[in-house]
């Protein structure tokens, strides 16, 4: 399954925007675990996922060619 990853802020310093090919990942909960295994720095950060431009609030099915964005909070002004 193909997923397009988009990252913002500090997260983009260790996760580039990229297309990835993954198998056995059916939903956003599993994907979150996959991300945190691949990029352990995420584990200690606050972030939110968006699937196809919708904020993920509960476990959601991921289909082929999904776009997943990873967004941290900003506070600067």
């Amino acid at each position: 399954m193909k997923i397009e990853l988009i990252s913002f802020g500090k997260i983009s310093e260790f996760i580039n925007n990229q297309n990835i090919e993954v198998d056995g990942i059916a939903d956003t909960d599993t994907f979150k675990q996959y991300l945190e295994n691949q990029f352990p720095a995420l584990k200690s950060m606050k972030y939110k996922l968006a699937l196809n431009k919708n904020i993920v609030q509960e476990n959601t099915e991921i289909t082929n060619n999904a776009i997943i964005a990873i967004m941290p909070p900003f506070s600067g002004g």
Binding site: K10, S44, M45, K46, I55, Q57, P72, P73, S75
Partner: peptide, 14 residues
């Protein structure tokens, strides 16, 4: 808080 329910821990953000 619908985006970020609780504030980041100290030292977590840059």
């Amino acid at each position: 808080r619908d985006l970020f329910p609780i504030p980041p821990d100290k030292g977590e953000v840059a």
